[in-house]
């Protein structure tokens, strides 16, 4: 369980990224964070594993105050939380397998990992993580030989190899093409459902957030402006979060300018998600 108690974040340059955030995310939830760029989505996500430390309030993960954790304790927290990045953050020259195995380093001593010594279980776990993501056959290929969607799946496998309770995803599909986006989002959904892993994802595309997540958190200028189930999102609420009507690029697969009434309400989203699916069948 992740709990935010009056969390604030002020950057050294004086920018107030988060203010008075109060939230509770239960185990096994799929939560999407939406909002304009610069609204503090990334910062919020990164306070959960202290990649960015909150400057006020408390972030509790399973009852532990993340901000108070340092050194070994912090690393133990982090190894139980997977993180996915927009640019995949794989070592491009290394093999897929090596990249996934790297997710296990925190479970072993520095000395052993320095020489690349891992127990057999770990190696099997890494391969199984790849199997779960359906890219076992690419295990010994160089990571940069893979397509974008496959690379993001390798990153997901690396997170799974950590054996995590929570996966944080920072704009996971922002650098993928529309069709790959849907398959990767399906993977997130599957991981969430099959393994009961909590997923917290920053989403640029509002329709995807509504389609895949159970719960939407809306941020505006560092403040929490919406927190509720994704099927309750409507036009008024989007305007509240975005402070304006949506731009075309904020809707997955749209290039024309949408009317606000197109976006709000689930029936429109269903229409959008059907089109790419039909393409992928070919």
């Amino acid at each position: 369980m992740i709990k935010f108690v009056d969390v604030g974040k002020k950057y050294p340059n004086g920018f107030q990224a988060l203010e008075h955030i109060n939230l509770e995310i239960k185990d096994g939830e799929f939560v999407a964070i939406i909002g304009l760029s610069g609204a503090g989505k990334s910062t919020l996500l990164r306070t959960i594993n202290k990649m960015n430390a909150a400057t006020s309030g408390q972030v509790l993960v399973n009852g532990k105050d993340v901000n108070k954790l340092e050194g070994k304790e912090l690393r133990e927290l982090r190894r139980g939380i997977g993180m996915i990045f927009q640019s995949f953050n794989l070592v491009k020259r290394a093999s897929v397998y090596k990249n996934v195995l790297a997710g296990r380093v925190a479970y072993h001593s520095t000395f052993k990992t320095l020489f690349g010594i891992f127990p057999e279980e770990d190696k099997i776990m890494a391969l199984e993580a790849l199997e779960k993501m359906g890219i076992l056959d690419k295990a010994y290929e160089r990571a940069d030989k893979l397509s974008g969607g496959q690379q993001q799946r390798v990153a997901l496998a690396r997170a799974l190899a950590q054996n995590p309770q929570i996966i944080l995803a920072d704009e996971p599909v922002a650098s993928l093409d529309p069709i790959t986006t849907l398959t990767v989002m399906d993977d997130f959904k599957r991981i969430n459902k099959e393994y009961g892993i909590t997923i917290v994802a920053n989403m640029h595309h509002v329709d995807l957030a509504v389609k895949y997540a159970e719960r939407i958190i809306g941020l505006q200028a560092g403040k929490l402006v919406y927190d509720g189930p994704s099927d309750a999102i409507d036009e008024a609420k989007l305007i509240q979060i975005y402070g304006r009507s949506l731009h075309a690029d904020e809707i997955h697969g749209r290039v024309d300018t949408p009317k606000i009434s197109d976006i709000a309400g689930t029936k429109v989203f269903e229409k959008h998600s059907e089109a790419p699916k039909a393409e992928s069948k070919k």
């Binding site: 133990e76 279980e121 099997i124 776990m125 391969l127 199984e128 309770q165």
Partner: peptide, 29 residues
């Protein structure tokens, strides 16, 4: 949190030692 995690690892490890649970694809690879 720690206990729960360790429990998870234990579960996974016992699974692996029991070779029935590792799929053939994985063991081949």
């Amino acid at each position: 949190f720690k206990n729960k995690e360790q429990h998870q690892i234990k579960k996974q490890v016992t699974q692996l030692n029991d070779s029935m649970h590792v799929s053939k694809d994985v063991s081949d690879k």
